[in-house]
Each structure stands twice: as C-alpha cells, then as structure tokens.
Nucleic acid binder design. Structure first.
Lengths: 209, 209
DNA sequence: GCTGTGAGGTGACTTGAATCACCAGCCTAA
DNA sequence: TTAGGCTGGTGATTCAAGTCACCTCACAGC
C-alpha cells in the first residue's frame, strides 16, 4: 500500500511532486519507540532512513567506550546508511532513537536511479555530508582542545535546545556514556558547573542555564 | 589554451571521454612546490582541486593548535573545497602540499552542471565524502582512546607508507604540530618507541619498522 | 676564533582525568 | 521487613600529558 502524500508532508518543501510520488510508491514509514537501536555497528543496509519526526542520535564505538557524534533531526538523513547501503559495506557507527520517532525508509536499490534523476535528492545528501563532516570537525576540536567541563556544558546546552526542555532527565551514567568517559568524572564536573552557576541539579533532572 | 588529454591521463580510468573533454576545456593544471599552503582557513573557493601527482595534507586548526586530519592522494579531491565552493561558504580547514604536487583545478561554476550530467563526477565526490567521513571517524577514535605512543606510531607508519620511504626526515617539532601536541612530548614518546624497538632515530631521520 | 640559532634531550612540576574503593539514600521485589 | 540494586557522592591514588626551565651539540656566518 503506497504512502499518502500527507504522510510525506514534512518533505514537501524539499522534494518535487514527481519525486514525492516515487517515494510514496516505494518508501515505508515506521515508528520507533525512544531508546530503540535502529542501526547497529557492522550492519549491512537495505533501507536508508529519513527522519520525519523525533530525534535520532549517532554514536561511534571503540573497544567498550562510546561517543555521541551528532543528532539526526526531522527531514535529515543518515550519511552512514547512505554510503553503507550504496557500497554494500558495513556500518561503522550505531544509532538510537532519542525520542519516539517516525522514520521514512527508502529502499537502497532505488537510490541510485533517484540520485541520477532527481537533483533534489542528490542535493539533500551532499548537504547531509557537509553537515556531518562539519559536525565531526567540531567533535575533533572539542576532544582535542576542550576540557571536560566545557564539553559537558556544550553537550547539555545542545541537548536542552534540541529537546526543547530546560530540565533534562539524565543519569550521570548516561551522560558519561555519551561523552566517552565514566560516571565519577561526570559527577565531579557537573558539581563544578553547578558551583559556577551554569547548571542546577534538581530532584527531577538537570536544569541548564 | 585547453589541456591535452595526456595531461589528464591519471583520470582516464575514472572519467569518460566526454567529461575529460569538458575538463580539458575548462580546467587548469598547476604545479606547487612542497610546503605550499594551497587552501587557507576562512578562504572562499572558486577552484576545486583534484590531485594528479604528489601529496597534499589537510589540517584543522583551533586557537593556535593544529591537527593533521588526512592526506589527499593522486586522483583524489578535497571535499571541503567542493562544499565551500558550491555553497559559497568559507573553508574550515587548511591544506599544504607535502611533496611537490600537480593539481588539476576545476572552476566551481561548471561543477553544478557536471554533477547533473556526468554521474562519474558525482560518484567521485560521494566516494571522497565517504572516505573523509571515515578518516575523521578514525581520528576521533584515535584521539579519544589511544595514547600518544600509539598515535605517534600510527602516524609514522602511515607517513612512511604514503611517501614510500622507510626513513622519514622529520623534526620533532613538525611531528608535534601535526599531532596537536608539543615538541618535548614527541621527544619523550619517540624515545619510548625506540626502546620498544618500533622506530630508530638516525642522524638523517627516523626509521620506522 | 666567537656567536647565534635550531634541534634534541631531560628533570621538576602541574594538571585533568581515570581508576579504585567505599558510603548513603532510595526504591522495589521477595 | 529485609536484601539487593540503582544512583549519586567522595577521598586517595595513579597516570598521561602539558609546561617550564635549562642543557648540549652541530652548524652557519661573520
């Protein structure tokens, strides 16, 4: 059963009617609950996702430790699945829904012809590559030059902005996982941020200023 | 004066005759001596380079410190100039020739139409984006999880492989600049590698095993 | 000769972060 | 009611790196 154009409404500004019809005919829409791993490391890809609603986070991992690389927001896609899908190579990263999310899944075997015939989809992926390249550069800068307090504060600020919440319900352990460090370090550093008046730990979460 | 097809020989495996003719008509070939800065941070781009001969290294910088991100080898291109050129945005990185190099320079205003009409050039840039994305992931892993001795050894191994030389003529200070640290650290760490039998410091350079 | 400069070496110290060990406050399930 | 499991807090220690200060050695230029 093809999708309806109203389901693809979030993409209507970016894609022309003809491409939207193609997508409606061959794409699938799926909902994923918060915390679902939608892409595993090492996985081979048959479907390329575009986020319609919600928020997806992307991680690199390396011998036990993990690091949050960036978020995929609505109407964005995942360049790792794109390249892994087209080259039939395994994914080097993994991705988890940060909120309940709705994803449009596009079959990889259609992608090559769509890229040729619809410049808009080509542009989308070039944009996404630029964006992710840039975000990886930011990550590198931050790892190389910022201390944990800076990194933690930026992390909290960004998360608060993305989720539109001033109070974040996060365990110290979760934060540590996303920043590639351990719980004790977060406990100490967050206390320092609190003393500097940048955040406040409340019974129901962390308030960011 | 258009280029001759023999000058574009390194690209003949990758591009069809028609595209090669287009490139010959609109491209320019230039030679750069070793150590020339061919792309500055903050620069706006009018020409997109493809390396024909030699080796180019790409750096990120951030408040004084610098870090080597990756090398551009013959028949590869630079995704930063590609995206900065097409979006008319400034470069976030800078690039220096590591050896005497020959570059093919393509005018950015031709690129949009070439991308639409010649899938091969589209494929080249997708490949380059994948490659650089992957290399940035490696850099992140290495920064986050490897100690300096590991990072230094990998750096020396790669440089030796790329330049095809077992003995590298490098000053400690240069190495420090490329790894984002300072001279004393390199002096000490390289001594440890020497004790472990992984490298040897000779009067005329560093031998890597 | 002397002098300046760049390269490499090294000790002493500081610092940011990781690691280890242990404690207290909860909440939940048996 | 009690045991066990999260969660957060904290001191002590270790460790990798960065910083500072100063040295030697080779070499170039007068």
């Amino acid at each position: 059963m093809p999708l309806t154009l109203s389901e693809l409404q979030p993409l209507s500004g970016r894609f022309s009617g003809e491409l939207l019809n193609e997508i409606a005919a061959h794409g699938v829409i799926m909902d994923f609950a918060e915390g679902t791993e939608i892409l595993r490391e090492g996985q081979y890809i048959k479907l390329i996702p575009i986020v319609l609603k919600g928020l997806v986070k992307v991680f690199a991992s390396f011998e036990e430790k993990e690091l949050l690389l960036y978020y995929i927001e609505p109407s964005q896609s995942c360049v790792m699945t794109f390249s892994a899908g087209l080259n039939n190579s395994p994914s080097r990263i993994f991705a988890i829904t940060e909120e309940d999310s709705t994803l449009l899944l596009l079959p990889v075997e259609k992608m090559n012809s769509w890229i040729k015939h619809y410049p808009q989809i080509n542009e989308l992926f070039y944009q996404q590559y630029n964006l992710r390249y840039s975000e990886l550069l930011d990550t590198i800068n931050s790892l190389l030059f910022n201390r944990m307090d800076q990194r933690l504060y930026s992390y909290l600020l960004e998360k608060s902005k993305l989720k539109g919440e001033k109070i974040l319900q996060l365990k110290h352990k979760q934060i540590a996982g996303e920043l590639g460090t351990v719980r004790e370090v977060i406990t100490r550093v967050i206390k320092r941020l609190e003393q500097e008046g940048k955040v406040k730990q409340l019974p129901d979460g962390i308030e960011v200023f």
